[in-house]
Simulated assay, not measured.
Amino acid sequence: MLKHGLDPADRRRPDRLSDRELADRHQAMQGFLTVAGPQLDQLYNLVGLSGCNVLLTDAHGIVLDQRVSDGDAQQFRDWGLWQGADWSEAAQGTNGIGTCLAEGRALTIHRDEHFHTRNTAMSCMDAPIWGPDGRLLAALDVSSARADQTERYNRLISAQVASTARAIEAVFFRSSFPGARIVVASDDPSEQAMLLAVDRDDLAIGATRAARRALGLEREGAIRPRPAADLLGRQDDLHGFDRGERAAVIRALARAEGNVSQAARALGIGRATLYRRMARLGIGDEPARLSHD
């Protein structure tokens, strides 16, 4: 790419961080790498036998983790598809990792679509991973150098890469809000990355990038806490304190496993008072759920 001053005929391997620099990057993203590891293992179990290299980078295109067979390792090491290597677009021109990060979308760079001629034997399928703050966090890459790799096979791998990237994003989001309830903000079960983190007061305090976009929340950074019911479009006839009181009563009944007397004691009121409030708030006396001991 001219704007980066790169020569497509350059045969040098990608620059690689020193061991100390790579260790520092690992340390900075240790929590993310820990939760992503099992997902990398699952992806590698699906594609590894076909000669693929599974790589996970940071947002700057530095390879932080990978899965590759012993038989294929030397070939990928010779190409520089290895931990510590810089595969940003600024360093390597058009390539799966760098272009995925530059454009923020899933894509495939097949053989001679690569900028450097030395990379044209590879096919690379990539998907971005977004952090809990809505910012680009990483790229997931599967690279293959099989001569018989077809575009149809690439599409199958690409779909699996995108699915795994969403799974990593969802797992990391959940681990980032350990004290919150995680709510899927979509009726579509395939939208595993459209999540809200809801606190004990039923306020949404976190949202994945997909949820931010769908619900019109802040694009990046912390979100302003909002009632989860408002964001999810739940309508009822209660407003203000009545809505909060209803939520408090329902929580007390749930913790008491439906025992009204126990829930009343937890709330510091009499059982008769609790019954009156339940009637006013529209909380039905369902025999299968409530007891009166």
Rank of each mutant, 00 (worst) to 15 (best):
G216V: 00
Y153G: 10
Y275W: 09
G221L: 00
L195N: 02
D188K: 12
S190K: 15
D242P: 01
R277F: 09
D230M: 15
A204E: 07
A272W: 00
R200A: 15
A247F: 13
R174V: 15
L267P: 04
R200K: 12
L156K: 00
S186K: 10
Q262M: 12
Q262G: 12
L253Q: 08
L217T: 01
A185V: 06
R277P: 06
A211Q: 07
R271Q: 13
G240V: 02
I157T: 04
R219K: 06
H239S: 14
R271I: 14
V171E: 01
A185W: 08
S190F: 11
D201W: 11
E151V: 11
D237A: 13
Q192R: 15
A165E: 07
I269K: 04
R224V: 04
L232S: 12
L156N: 08
R174G: 06
S190T: 05
S261H: 08
R255E: 00
A204Y: 10
R213M: 10
N259T: 09
L215N: 05
A248V: 06
R200F: 06
D236I: 01
A145P: 02
I223C: 11
L267A: 11
D242Q: 15
L274C: 09
A279F: 10
A180E: 00
S261D: 12
D237K: 06
I250M: 12
A266C: 08
P227A: 15
R213A: 15
E257W: 11
R181L: 06
A248C: 08
S158W: 07
A180N: 00
S176A: 07
A204N: 09
D236V: 05
G240E: 03
G244W: 02
L203K: 01
R251T: 15
R271S: 08
A162K: 14
Q262I: 05
A147R: 10
A272N: 12
L203G: 01
F177W: 15
G258C: 06
A180P: 06
E169I: 09
A263V: 06
A170V: 13
R174L: 11
H239P: 00
E257P: 02
A207R: 13
R226N: 02
T273K: 00
P189H: 14
P178S: 15
G258S: 08
A222T: 14
S186A: 15
G270R: 02
R213P: 02
A247V: 07
E218H: 06
A165Q: 09
V198C: 03
S176R: 07
A145Y: 09
A248I: 09
A170P: 01
G240S: 08
A248L: 12
Y153K: 01
A210N: 05
D148E: 12
R234L: 12
E245L: 14
R243C: 05
D148G: 03
S144C: 14
A248W: 04
P227V: 09
F173K: 01
